[in-house]
Design a binder for these strands. Structure first.
Lengths: 210, 210
DNA sequence: TAGATTGTTAATCGATTAACAATC
DNA sequence: TAGATTGTTAATCGATTAACAATC
């Protein structure tokens, strides 16, 4: 029921949760099936059942899954019962956009502090928070017990910032910097680089079709 | 030398390209090896050699790879020789940040038009461009021959916008909307949802350790 | 030459899918 | 009951890695 679940399976659970939450918002919708969920996500029903089977039995033969119950279980599995405080490092255009994003709260996260090393940015507002000096970061993170950080700093500053975050007790980093980071075992890193994603898609765009 | 390369391989090529470009910027650095590149990316050397072998032979036994030559070849393979014009749909906080991002140009892309359906946003500036009415989108995209779009609209508008983009000839969509999109075969979609990434990482954050 | 590193093959490892008994 | 759908097993499929001959 646990024994090192494949990471690729863990990666799909948030997608299941997201789609189930969407279903829960559709009036009169109480139950679903692996088939329906799979169809909406563009994957196979067998994969959904297999993925869930790593964690227990959440459905009923003949009737499928109770949406709100499955949401509860996924929320448990992913440790989303309480809101996670998140530190945002970097208050440039992207940092500002992330600080202003209304979508975190509803899904288990809240940016509670923003840092930048640029004196021109320290003291300005970002999504209702005052940008703090990155030099005070370690202290603040320790005080607040923050375990998750979003990295929105320039590529050249990313590794040093990641090192500082890890040293301050952060165990999960979502990085928007276009560089590969090195972190100690036990620390999770997830990347978002729009150009990498676009470049993968251009492979499929022949120069002259359409 | 071609025969449907696995998508997971295609997805790593932009990472190789990114790291190689980084190496190229390090003074005196001319050559590299699968071992060095792998180390910097945190993957195995064998995987890099295997991935590249799908496309040809780009290295030399005993000496490795010439960095600038490998960059050229990857640039060819990914169709990044010419700059791709990109449409951005949605001029909210995130859209503004993307429109202002300086990192596209250098890596093969340029946002050349921005659309929004909100009359309050039409006419304002986004990264040096004037936001245009989304109602005119299809015409503009056809005129400009745009094949790539970035979706930064609310979840509820995402599918309809994607449909409109595809109808206008777009073949690659990078979506920041937190929903799964349905597109016809031959159209590529790539997703970016920070919450999904954070939720995957919280699985590994036990509630009470550290 | 000796050392290094490629490209490739075969072996291993892991993930997905098909199928079906169980059962609601 | 008949129909539907689960959870699970076994089979298939695909990706990664180890190993090494070739060769710079």
């Amino acid at each position: 029921m646990d024994h090192t679940i494949p990471e690729i399976v863990i990666g799909r659970l948030p997608l299941y949760l997201r789609e189930l939450s969407r279903m829960a918002g559709e009036s009169g919708k109480i139950k679903t099936s692996s088939h329906e969920l799979a169809q909406r996500l563009g994957i196979s029903p067998a994969q959904i059942r297999k993925d869930l089977s790593h964690f227990g039995e959440f459905g009923k033969q003949g009737t499928g899954y109770h949406i709100s119950y499955l949401i509860e279980r996924l929320t448990d599995i992913l440790h989303l019962n309480d809101e996670w405080p998140v530190a945002l490092v970097g208050a440039g255009f992207l940092g500002q956009a992330l600080a202003s994003y209304r979508g975190f709260q509803r899904r288990g996260f809240a940016i509670t502090c923003v840092f930048d090393s640029d004196p021109a940015k320290v003291g300005v507002k970002a999504g209702g928070l005052v940008v703090q000096d990155a030099a005070t970061m370690a202290t603040r993170l320790r005080e607040a017990g923050i375990r998750i950080a979003i990295l929105a700093v320039p590529a050249d500053a990313a590794q040093a910032t990641a090192d500082a975050l890890v040293a301050a007790g952060v165990g999960a980093i979502l990085s928007y910097a276009p560089v590969s980071l090195t972190v100690p075992p036990g620390v999770s890193v997830s990347y978002s680089d729009p150009v990498v994603q676009l470049q993968q898609m251009t492979y499929h765009l022949s120069i002259e079709n359409e």
